[in-house]
């Protein structure tokens, strides 16, 4: 493995460039982005490669400014839940057996349909790519149990994805100047005028 290739920089790149490239990639593959995603394992693998490459370059350059501060593998093991009403369903979702999981949940009726039931329904739909339904199930789960960390983080992740803005690009207001710009320019000009001792004229 050529660590420079992994980071996408030339071997002649400065320490700062290496660091910037590393940061970019770490941001791209960060486990937070892929929480609840079926591709999470692939992202984790990428992240590991990038971390290793960066460590290698740092070792090679030793006294350079690039300090070893690789992102740690985030603690994304969803085994954090303690008391679940649906251990089987959670296992099936983990194994990717979505239809079976769905069947069990559909068999639950009335009061059995607690917040976790809605959350897990959301999980199944999310895995299937049925994002709209998933979103509404997550919302219901959070409404029923607003203090549940697991449900909340799933909803937050989804909220982030429902706003697409790659690389901060915005088609509106990309050019031209607003009223604010005009005002600031006038104020600046006025100040400059005052400096030159031109009073009264502007």
């Amino acid at each position: 493995m050529n660590p420079y290739q992994v980071l996408g920089v030339a071997e002649t790149a400065t320490d700062a460039e290496v660091k910037t490239a590393y940061r970019e990639l770490a941001k791209k593959y960060h486990p937070d982005n892929y929480a609840d995603s079926p591709l999470a394992d692939l992202a984790e693998q990428k992240m590991k490669e990038v971390n290793e490459a960066y460590d290698m370059i740092c070792d090679m350059r030793k006294n350079g400014g690039a300090s070893r501060s690789t992102y740690s593998q985030s603690s994304y093991n969803n085994s954090g839940y303690t008391n679940t009403s649906f251990p089987d369903v959670r296992r099936l979702i983990k194994e990717g057996r979505l239809d079976d999981a769905m069947q069990i949940l559909n068999g639950v009726s009335g009061t059995g349909r607690n917040a976790e039931w809605y959350f897990l329904m959301g999980m199944i739909f999310s895995r299937k790519g049925w994002t709209e339904q998933a979103y509404s199930y997550f919302q219901t789960a959070c409404r029923m149990e607003p203090n549940n960390q697991e449900f909340m983080s799933a909803l937050n992740n989804m909220n982030a994805r429902r706003h697409y803005n790659p690389s901060g690009y915005n088609t509106a207001n990309s050019s031209g100047c607003s009223i604010c710009d005009v005002c600031t320019t006038l104020i600046c000009l006025d100040c400059m005028c005052d400096c030159c001792g031109g009073n009264g004229c502007c």
């Binding site: 790519g129 994002t131 709209e132 979103y135 989804m158 982030a160 994805r161 429902r162 706003h163 697409y164 790659p166």
Partner: peptide, 8 residues
């Protein structure tokens, strides 16, 4: 709903 698709 469209943004969600593009994000994924």
């Amino acid at each position: 709903s469209l943004d969600h698709c593009l994000s994924e």
